[in-house]
Design a protein around this nucleic acid. Sequence first.
DNA 1: AATGAATGAGGTTTCATTCAT
DNA 2: CATGAATGAAACCTCATTCAT
Lengths: 197, 197, 197, 197
Amino acid sequence: MNVQLVMENLAEKKKAIFESTLQLIKENGFHGSPISLVAKNACCAAGTIYHYFDSKDTLIMELHSYVKSRLLEVLTNESESELDFKEQFTNRWVRICNFYIENPDILYFIEQFANSPYKDRGDINEEDKFKETVIAFYNRAMEKGVIKEMNQELIRTLVHSSIVTTAKMVLSGKITVSEADLMQMAGIMWKGLLIEK
Amino acid sequence: MNVQLVMENLAEKKKAIFESTLQLIKENGFHGSPISLVAKNACCAAGTIYHYFDSKDTLIMELHSYVKSRLLEVLTNESESELDFKEQFTNRWVRICNFYIENPDILYFIEQFANSPYKDRGDINEEDKFKETVIAFYNRAMEKGVIKEMNQELIRTLVHSSIVTTAKMVLSGKITVSEADLMQMAGIMWKGLLIEK
Amino acid sequence: MNVQLVMENLAEKKKAIFESTLQLIKENGFHGSPISLVAKNACCAAGTIYHYFDSKDTLIMELHSYVKSRLLEVLTNESESELDFKEQFTNRWVRICNFYIENPDILYFIEQFANSPYKDRGDINEEDKFKETVIAFYNRAMEKGVIKEMNQELIRTLVHSSIVTTAKMVLSGKITVSEADLMQMAGIMWKGLLIEK
Amino acid sequence: MNVQLVMENLAEKKKAIFESTLQLIKENGFHGSPISLVAKNACCAAGTIYHYFDSKDTLIMELHSYVKSRLLEVLTNESESELDFKEQFTNRWVRICNFYIENPDILYFIEQFANSPYKDRGDINEEDKFKETVIAFYNRAMEKGVIKEMNQELIRTLVHSSIVTTAKMVLSGKITVSEADLMQMAGIMWKGLLIEK
DNA sequence: AATGAATGAGGTTTCATTCAT
DNA sequence: CATGAATGAAACCTCATTCAT
């Protein structure tokens, strides 16, 4: 077996553990997701998890990074770099929202993580490409005078809330939305950010 | 000691346990809030807590009801029943936001609770006066043709997100707001709900 | 309230506690009979029980004495002192058996007590009139050459087993017995004790 | 280590826990046998016990099955299948009695178990080979017209009582018995079951 | 690398007992 | 006398983690 394959298998195993964890956390929360269950759900032994992660905390933190990297993939789309701000914003809003709808495990993990003491335990210097990418977008839009001067964190959180709320509504079956509906919702959010003229 | 006083003392103890729990959950999350700590923090023995609550779960659920009832007090304000929709909305938005800013324990508890398996464990038939009051308001506004026809849950969640996000920003020190700023934010949210003419 | 009445009330309370304890022990065993439940079942406060008994152990030991004294009452019957051994034996056997059938709580308490560490905790010098009465009977019968010379303890236990077993069968509904059947069973036991000629 | 050995070690551990439990229950009753003591006595950690048993109740119930299976071994003796009823009965009575005398832990456990709420907690459909074997014997004897038609449960309990009582007497030192004495006692019991001619 | 039995600290909960009222 | 809130030791049980295989 060559190095490449080993690496892939390793990645496979890690991914299985990640998916197992996501699923359990969605269903039972951090509380109800002991390593023993994570292991069983990932078809491996508890000890195996400690080959890949130093501790349960490490597992959670790395899972968070993994989830963020997947979100970054969804966010990024080279082909659209030439679009105007509104179209980029709308496309991104819809893509992330659809991603959450298709990956509810990730949505609930992100939400639980953000409201847990884990969120403050991360390496303070750890870069967050997702966050940086979003901030860069708003910075450019502000510099160009397209959107209001507002606190970055505030905008990001409000916009993200709108995505999360929409995805949760869809997942709970309380509303059904077409692609056009999502575009429209994104449009409303964008309008809120625009400089009023 | 008469009955009234006994009742008050009883309430006092329960309240002390509630406050202790809120504080610990804010600091350490559900995880990091064992009964032993809750007890020490409330200046009582662990066993005492089981005098008032059947289990830790019950404590959390009753704490949630307690918090909701305090929020309801903040929401309700008889004197303003004659104001127009916008003023009522704005006043309520600001009052709740200020309440969260002054009671961060409650803010963080509400958020953690909403993103935990606890939220689905409540009595399905338990009434939620807070929710009902808010829904009644939007219903009236829709009937009068003041705001758009939208899914109730969606509006409520989005508006609540905006309050929570703002309060968190203030608490984290990332922004400082005057009363006027809050009024303005509430105004922006209201504008988003209006029927466009 | 005169002294007599006070004494009676005191006795009443103690008796209520005894009955409550018997009932709970029958249903849940020693395990499942905490003082709090005993109190509730006896319509008094937990603290009250400690006015009458030094400790839970004391309660159990005194309950045992109480039960033994009630058994003694059943055993003793002055009017029959002139009967022959067989008739006395048979009458007593049947009376005790009927008593157990009518007081299952007591039957199960006696049985559980006898198979618990409590049985060795009693005051070693405490007299047991019930036991003494039974032994006296067998002694007289042996002296008269009516029954075999056997270990007292052995006879007593075997005869008591036969009573308990019969009562349990009746209580479980596995058999139904007439008074005559009981007389017959007692007769069989007596035959086993007789000197074979 | 091969599978066979692993299985044996597993059995070893479970057996050690069983023996530890039996010993403690004999000395202190169910009450005085907390898991912590059972563990210490079995030279393992408390947690280990929960590796093998779901709960303390499960441990007790499985211990009961284990004890019953050991009794079944003692009861069963292929070589004697050709003996007549009386000899089979006598041999079995003596074997079980000797087993209790040599294994007082088991005797006291059986007795305490039978007089505890545990006895009603077992799986209702769980087979009890010991019981079945005994019943089969009495059935055959009844069919052949050797012993009286009596309630099965009644016979079984009375005979078992006689064994238990005898074993307890011996263990308490109140009587000493030779093998011949035991044979004689068994014979007396058998005589009681015979159809009188 | 993978396993899963074993550990034991620590969590939730129970309950005999006390004591101020 | 009676109460029942309060106590805290100790029970049961969980689970992150280790380690021999």
